[in-house]
Design a protein around this nucleic acid. Structure first.
Lengths: 158, 158
DNA sequence: GGAAACTGTTTACTAGATTAACGATATGGG
DNA sequence: CCCATATCGTTAATCTAGTAAACAGTTTCC
């Protein structure tokens, strides 16, 4: 048999193989693309950098200071129980504070520290660099088109 | 999301952070879109339907009969150890068989049963219906454009 | 002949996320 | 006012998807 080093040969005795069905599905292509982008994101931000979801949370806290955890979870589309660890991490790194809200002792508003704002600005630059590099084979117009089409899918969000 | 107001914008924010907006990142939009499509996939295929990755594996086994597990894992972009459970499930449901390959006693070729081919044809129809419905606000041309753009990202595979 | 590589598998671990429950608090109706 | 109901942040248990490392058996190559 021939060498099977990098690519796997398919049996020649079968009928000629057509284009795989999988490639026709948007969902499959979406996932494969997402995995690539996510892996590159992590690589770009490094070992002790932000995970994508932590970066997203910090971004929203910087953009919407005094947001509550429930509000943040809603924005991120995750359960508020799942947000606790994320906020713990960000608070542990001194990037935000849980603060008391006068008038409602249930909630704790999330406020970015100045260190948090700086860290976010730096991380955002790193993320932009990562996307610019990874997507350098897409023109600005193509990127805008992709955003618009993903937005059409996202229109199914609550 | 749009219902949330920005609060207490401090002057120093402007200096440090221009418009921190998650929506500008391809990765974020990709993930949000992926989550929606995947959730709808599962809803459409039902409680005891295929999970996306199981569907993908079955698809490839039907189209590439006699593929090995290593080859299949490579095609799916996952580790071969992670494929064992998927193949176990498909074999347990009688949809494929692990068969001995004369000439190489290490590998076990994966062959779809006729039940497996039928089940795949039905599942594929269900997945197509799910995508047609979910993406009904995209024209055929837009879907093709989206595929092409995702393909450009996927060109970074391997 | 022997080192290196490959196959399928098990085991252990991680990350991400969900559900259900909880105590504390807030709110609105009667 | 009281009480039912809802909300907030949190913990704990569980689930899924996926990786990494090791393994015995097998094959390839020099």
């Amino acid at each position: 048999m021939a060498s099977l080093r990098k690519t796997d040969r398919q049996p020649e005795d079968e009928a000629l193989v057509e284009t795989p069905d999988l490639e026709e599905f948007i969902g499959y292509n979406l996932k494969r693309a997402y995995v690539i982008v996510q892996a590159d994101f992590r690589r770009a931000l490094g070992e002790d950098g932000f995970a994508p979801r932590v970066f997203s949370a910090l971004s929203l806290v910087v953009q919407y200071p005094n947001v509550t955890q429930s509000g943040l979870a809603r924005m991120l589309g995750i359960e508020r129980s799942g947000l606790v660890a994320i906020v713990d991490e960000l608070e542990g790194r001194g990037l935000l504070k849980r603060t008391v809200v006068p008038g409602d002792r249930r909630v704790q508003a999330l406020v970015p520290t100045s260190k948090g704002k700086t860290a976010y600005a730096e991380a955002r630059a790193a993320v932009r660099a990562h996307e610019d590099r990874l997507l350098s084979n897409l023109s600005d117009e193509e990127k805008a088109t992709l955003m618009a089409l993903l937005g059409k899918i996202r229109s199914h969000e609550e």
